[in-house]
Simulated assay, not measured.
Amino acid sequence: MTIDLEYSSSLNGASFLLFELKQVLKLKRLGLTNQEIRHKVKENNLFQFNNQGRINRALPSVMKRAEAIDETLASLVLEDSIEVGKVLNLYAIMKTDLLFFEFMDELIGEKLHNNDYLIEKKDINLFFTSKAEQSEKVAGWSDINIEKLKRAFLQVLFESGMLRTRKGKELNRLVMDERIKSHLTYIGDVRFIRAMGE
């Protein structure tokens, strides 16, 4: 399934959210509609956030990620190890966020393919500068928005296990389960495997 995407800074309010994705996937598995899921998440505070504003910011992204994952992958997220869940959540984020996918594909995946395990501030700055040159939309974002987005991207790398420490510069290679690799290959999503450094 391909989703037509344009650049967005929604990762600022959404970050990694693996626990939240699992909550939504459980409700989907029960056959609830998207509207029912949204209602249940808000009504019962299933994300366990302490304010409604945060739920409202995170929910659209989590719903999109849940849509991007097919039943086979959803079962792996719900029933397998946390490591498998992290890889699939990273995949869902890339699948629903064009800018983050390009960040992974053009910067992180490229570094890992060249056995370069260092991500530096200048690498990230260069990536955002080149995107601003290619896209009026990115060029129109405020410096504050872009700084927040850089932090959000690094936070996703850290939580997925691709960045060794929260404030560090050292990349880790993800251990990708063969079932994930073969399923993503089968559904035509090989480019996402490559973007994760495989």
Results as ranks from 00 to 15, higher is better:
His113Tyr: 04
Leu154Pro: 03
Asn56Asp: 11
Gly140Thr: 03
Asn51Phe: 05
Ser9Trp: 12
Thr165Gln: 06
Glu36Gln: 15
Ile146Trp: 06
Ile37Gln: 03
Gln23Leu: 13
Gly161Ser: 09
Gly31Thr: 15
Tyr186Arg: 14
Asn125Val: 04
Thr72Val: 14
Val156Met: 08
Phe19Ala: 07
Lys42Arg: 09
Glu120Pro: 00
Asn145Lys: 14
Ala92Met: 06
Asn34Gly: 12
Leu73Asn: 05
Ala14His: 07
Glu120Gly: 00
Arg38Asn: 02
Asn89Glu: 06
Glu67Pro: 00
Ile55His: 00
Asp189Val: 15
Ser10Arg: 13
Gly197Asn: 11
Leu18Pro: 03
Gly140Cys: 01
Lys40Tyr: 09
Asp97Gln: 02
Leu59Thr: 08
Ala139Phe: 06
Val175Trp: 02
Lys28Arg: 12
Phe158Asn: 11
Asn114Asp: 07
Glu67Ala: 09
Glu67Asp: 14
Lys148Val: 14
Arg151Phe: 10
Met94Phe: 03
Asn125Ile: 07
Ile193Val: 15
Arg57Leu: 14
Ile124Gly: 00
Gln52Val: 11
Leu157Trp: 07
Leu30Val: 05
Leu11Glu: 07
Lys148Ser: 10
Ser182Glu: 15
Arg173Tyr: 09
Phe128Lys: 00
Asp177Val: 13
Asp143Met: 08
Val77Ile: 12
Gly13Ala: 08
Asp189His: 15
Glu6Ser: 14
Thr72His: 05
Val62Thr: 06
Ile187Trp: 11
Leu17Ser: 12
Met162Ile: 12
Phe101Tyr: 14
Phe127Tyr: 05
Gly109Asn: 05
Leu163Gln: 11
Thr185Asn: 13
Ile193Phe: 14
Arg151Trp: 12
Asn115Glu: 14
Gly53Tyr: 08
Val138Tyr: 01
Gly53Pro: 00
Val138Glu: 01
Gly161Arg: 11
Glu147Ala: 12
Val62Met: 03
Val190Ile: 15
Val41Ala: 01
Ala14Met: 04
Glu20Ser: 11
Gln48Glu: 10
Lys86Gly: 01
Ser81Lys: 01
Phe128Tyr: 06
Ile108Pro: 01
Lys64Trp: 05
Trp141Met: 06
Glu147Tyr: 10
Ser160Lys: 07
Ala139Arg: 12
Leu88Pro: 03
Phe16Trp: 10
Arg151Tyr: 11
Ile93Ser: 01
Phe101Ala: 00
Gly140Val: 05
Leu184Trp: 11
Leu171Phe: 08
Arg54Pro: 00
Thr33Cys: 06
Val41Met: 05
Glu198Thr: 13
Asp97Arg: 03
